[in-house]
Amino acid sequence: MILQKSIPYNPLEEVPLPGIKPMNLADWLRPDEAFAAQVAYRAELLSNSRDKVLMMHPDAQIAAQELLELVLDHRYDGARDHVILPDGTRVTLDWQQPLATLGQICQEDFCILERAEGSPEHVLTGAVLCFPASWTLAEKFMRPLVGVHDTVDSYDSKMASRVQRLFDGVQVGRPLWRFNALWYQSPELHAPRAEHDPRDQSHGEDAPYLRSEQQVILRLPKCRSVVFSIHTYMVHRDDVMAEWGQDVAAS
């Protein structure tokens, strides 16, 4: 069981969809107390279930390498050969496998979305997705934004247009972010669900764990592809209510 004790924003706040806010780039990729445990689990998944958690079209290689470079500059002082994780683990950087490398040095999952000339939407061309929440990478890979969200009830044509405008408009160095939050019976981080599998009806406000994703949209400066990063928090109900329950009661 891998849990955090706190979340750096109020996950119980009700925010109208899509709930997008500007983010200071310096606040991207902030590790928390679950870093070591989450990264170790990610390495295990990449070793044992690589075909389920990592997919990339060959044309996304340039974007993936640029993303790795950006992460290293931002998080690891511009390292290019290897990094030392906070627990002392040494990870050699494999520039031919940039997404797999990212999966071993960050808590975040990363999705690369690219819009080809003449295409109406961005397409998911690559991802390292170790901690899916009720979706599977294989079913979303190489699909446009509408296809990625086709099982989301609130993702209607109006919402699709708004999200596409966000992906078109996000500027280099000025990322955008949002969060989601849902109560879960299980604290399992790797929780895929196929599109045609029944929904888990056990979610509810009486469940013991709150799962919240901090989702960030940013543009790569060179190739101009869009990156969607996901930092997953799993927090016990007692800790959530101790930190944010008074805010909810007062609202």
Score class of each variant (00 low, 15 high):
residue 3 L to Y: 08
residue 3 L to D: 03
residue 4 Q to F: 02
residue 10 N to G: 11
residue 11 P to Q: 12
residue 12 L to R: 01
residue 13 E to S: 15
residue 15 V to Q: 02
residue 20 I to R: 03
residue 23 M to N: 09
residue 28 W to H: 10
residue 30 R to P: 00
residue 33 E to F: 06
residue 39 V to I: 13
residue 39 V to W: 02
residue 40 A to P: 04
residue 48 N to C: 09
residue 49 S to Y: 11
residue 50 R to P: 11
residue 51 D to F: 07
residue 54 L to T: 02
residue 59 D to N: 13
residue 83 V to L: 02
residue 85 L to N: 07
residue 91 V to C: 08
residue 92 T to K: 12
residue 93 L to D: 02
residue 95 W to E: 04
residue 100 A to G: 15
residue 102 L to P: 01
residue 103 G to K: 00
residue 105 I to K: 04
residue 106 C to L: 15
residue 109 D to N: 15
residue 111 C to Q: 05
residue 117 E to D: 13
residue 120 P to K: 02
residue 123 V to C: 14
residue 125 T to C: 14
residue 130 C to L: 01
residue 133 A to E: 04
residue 135 W to L: 01
residue 138 A to W: 11
residue 140 K to I: 00
residue 144 P to G: 09
residue 146 V to T: 15
residue 152 V to N: 08
residue 154 S to Y: 08
residue 154 S to D: 14
residue 155 Y to R: 04
residue 167 F to P: 03
residue 187 P to L: 08
residue 189 L to I: 12
residue 193 R to E: 03
residue 203 H to C: 12
residue 213 E to G: 04
residue 213 E to Y: 07
residue 215 Q to E: 04
residue 216 V to Y: 02
residue 219 R to Y: 01
residue 233 Y to I: 13
residue 237 R to V: 04
residue 237 R to Y: 10
residue 244 W to A: 06
residue 247 D to K: 13
residue 250 A to N: 11
residue 250 A to Y: 06
